[in-house]
Amino acid sequence: MIDRIIRSFELVKASWRILMEDKKLLAFPILSGLVTLLVIATFVIPLILSNSAYSLSTNSVAGIVLLFLFYVVSYFVVIFFNVGLISCVQAKLNGKDMSVGEGLSAAGRHLGAILAWAIVAATVGLILRMIEDRAGFLGQIAAAVVGGVWSLVTLFVVPVLAFEDKGVFAAMKESLELFKKTWGESVVGTISITLVFAAVGFVGVLLFLATLFIGNPTLIIAALVLLLVLIVVLAILASAMQGIFTVALYTYAKTGSAPGVFPPGSVEGAFAPSAQQQFGPGNI
């Protein structure tokens, strides 16, 4: 287990180095976040201004339809910019340089597949939301577990859609196969990226809480603003690094070799040989 954790952090460091060498990759999560805010405003502000009885909830048929549309548009935005990001990362790992505009153009060539995957993802998201709303605390636990498994087995859907031009359901099947092939340390590697940034964010929260004991309103407001900025920055960095990491995993799973940009052993070491893995309780 210690070896797995060590190799996971090697992957994180390798992804960080690539990001620092090609900072334009940050443009994609930034653009995704800004457009997502516009989407939220587009749906929420009209409801507030009109005092509409409808809302983004599952309390009525109209609310379910509106929430589904919100999910579809939101997922579409996120997936679109993710495709642009991983297209640039793939070019980088192959020794080429792709501009942000070229990455967006690459995403634009897959609009149909992106929309189809957004609809599937929105459907699953809506079902999980309905489970949460109707089954109470146990429903929230079930939705969290199912959502976590769903995220893992669909880990490679976006790369497959972008690089193999397969349909959504074929991409889902391929993603599951690739995930099974790379089960083990690959999960630890993916989670480690989240844990690193979560740890930094937690430190930021502790520092903010410390200002509450001081009791200075100006200091508290300044600390809150800095905490919000920190959270945004961490989210952007984590999203970009996750894109780099996912492409590296995808490349290794498909070719059996690590992309040349990663140091020898960093990606290869992130996988346990499939032949040595037995699928049982807790495995997919």
Rank of each mutant, 00 (worst) to 15 (best):
G201F: 14
L128C: 10
V89K: 09
I2T: 13
M172P: 01
N82H: 04
A210C: 08
G269Q: 11
K96E: 15
A53G: 15
D22G: 06
I5C: 05
L31E: 09
L66V: 15
I220H: 06
M20W: 13
V39P: 04
L126V: 06
A210L: 15
Q140E: 06
V225P: 03
E268G: 15
V233K: 01
P263L: 11
K166S: 14
G63T: 01
A62E: 08
V72P: 02
P264K: 04
I221V: 10
A142F: 10
G282F: 15
L49M: 03
L237I: 15
Q277G: 00
A144I: 07
A113L: 09
F163C: 12
S87I: 04
N51K: 13
I5K: 05
F208S: 01
G33E: 08
K173D: 08
P217R: 14
V61N: 09
L206C: 14
F245G: 02
L155P: 00
F28S: 00
G101E: 07
V77D: 02
G189P: 00
K13G: 00
I244T: 02
A248T: 03
L224Y: 15
S105E: 15
M1I: 05
P46C: 05
I127M: 06
V153R: 02
V196C: 06
L49N: 02
A142T: 04
V124Q: 07
W16F: 13
F28P: 00
A91N: 05
A135M: 09
A248M: 06
L234D: 10
T182E: 01
V153K: 01
D22W: 12
R4Y: 12
I79D: 02
G256V: 03
L104F: 14
A143D: 07
V149I: 07
I119G: 05
F81V: 03
Y252P: 10
P217K: 14
N94E: 10
S57G: 14
M20F: 13
G63R: 02
I214Y: 05
G269S: 12
F179K: 04
A122L: 08
P281F: 13
